[in-house]
């Protein structure tokens, strides 16, 4: 009886609910995002198990290029997974399990031509960007040179992926790590057509080693290595104070580069290289490849 009386109300509710569905869908289509997911790094076979976006209480798959809206949360469950986002509020940020969930805030400025014009008028009052230096020397295939870790024997940790960069020479290049003794066997070898490479130092490596970079015409440069399984203990404040893992890796690398004597430079470069697509790490590696050390 009660249901019969409520039937018109229920029907009206169902009608309104059904009618509002396309409206909600249209709202979604017309919403302006706060930014986008620009990278997903995960060893998991199923990315949905490693990370997801929480949107209005529902889990949405993390996909490269996917839009992020105000109120979304980036949730990373798997410890080795990170989601790289670019939003109006966060600019470029790597979200990992330690910093999950990460709330998304803001909205991209989404104006028409008049707001674009207004922005252009605003440019008139903007100061010109600072001048930058540019190297005007023509590029040549000079002598094969290597700057990183040349001054003292480099301590390296077995089981890590070493990053090495050089200049000049003719491609293809061969990077080899072998025992320093005469006729020492090769522990790791990799070929490269560019001027940097990552080579994995086996866990079994021990004692004095040699890292050699050779080019296509037989030129070779070398670095003396010493396998050392105990790297210097990095202060806890570095890992605790770092807002992201990538930031922490660059800070660790900088701390290692500050050690005297400079026997952990190669290890520092390896740590910075592990930071992935992170501007500060790439800048640091570029400087190290050129033989420059960050000044305090």
């Amino acid at each position: 009886m009660l249901l019969a009386r409520m039937r018109p109300a229920l029907l009206a509710f169902a009608f309104v609910a059904a009618a509002s569905l396309p409206v909600r869908a249209e709202d979604e289509a017309m919403r302006t995002p706060a930014g986008y997911i620009v990278g997903v790094e995960t060893p998991a076979a199923d990315p949905d198990e490693a990370a997801h976006i929480l949107r209005e209480g529902q889990e949405v798959s993390v996909q490269i290029g996917g839009a992020l809206f105000d109120g979304d949360q980036v949730v990373v469950r798997e410890p080795r997974t990170s989601v790289v986002i670019e939003t109006v509020n966060d600019r470029h940020l790597r979200v990992d399990a330690a910093h999950s969930p990460h709330p998304i805030k803001g909205e991209l400025p989404a104006g028409g031509r008049f707001s674009a014009f207004a922005a252009m008028v605003g440019e008139l009052f903007r100061a010109r960007p600072e001048a930058r230096t540019v190297n005007l020397i023509g590029r040549t295939d000079g002598t094969l040179r290597l700057q990183l870790g040349r001054t003292v024997t480099q301590r390296v940790v077995p089981g890590t992926r070493l990053w090495i960069a050089w200049d000049g020479g003719m491609k293809p290049y061969t990077v080899e790590i072998r025992g320093r003794a005469e006729g020492g066997t090769a522990l790791a070898t990799t070929r490269a057509s560019g001027r940097s490479a990552v080579v994995a130092l086996p866990r079994k490596a021990s004692g004095p080693l040699l890292l050699a970079v050779s080019d296509a015409v037989g030129a070779q440069v070398r670095i003396d290595l010493l396998a050392d399984p105990t790297p210097p203990a990095v202060p806890e404040w570095i890992s605790e104070g770092a807002p992201t893992p990538a930031f922490g890796q660059v800070a660790t690398a900088l701390w290692l580069l500050d050690r005297k004597p400079a026997e952990w430079d190669l290890h520092a470069a390896a740590i910075a290289a592990e930071a992935g697509n992170y501007g500060a790490a790439e800048e640091l590696l570029l400087r190290l490849a050129e033989g420059k050390r960050p000044a305090r």
Binding site: E26, A29, M30, R31, T32, G35, Y36, V38, G39, I64, G65, V84, E86, T87, V88, R91, H92, L108, P109, A110, G111, A116, A119, N277
Partner: peptide, 28 residues
Amino acid sequence: GPDHADPQFIRRDGRNVPLFRRVSARAL
């Protein structure tokens, strides 16, 4: 510039879509 730098949106098939998107091949 990066993907979040003052994008322009256009109407396409009743939706608001960004005029331009840029993605590094590395991300793919």
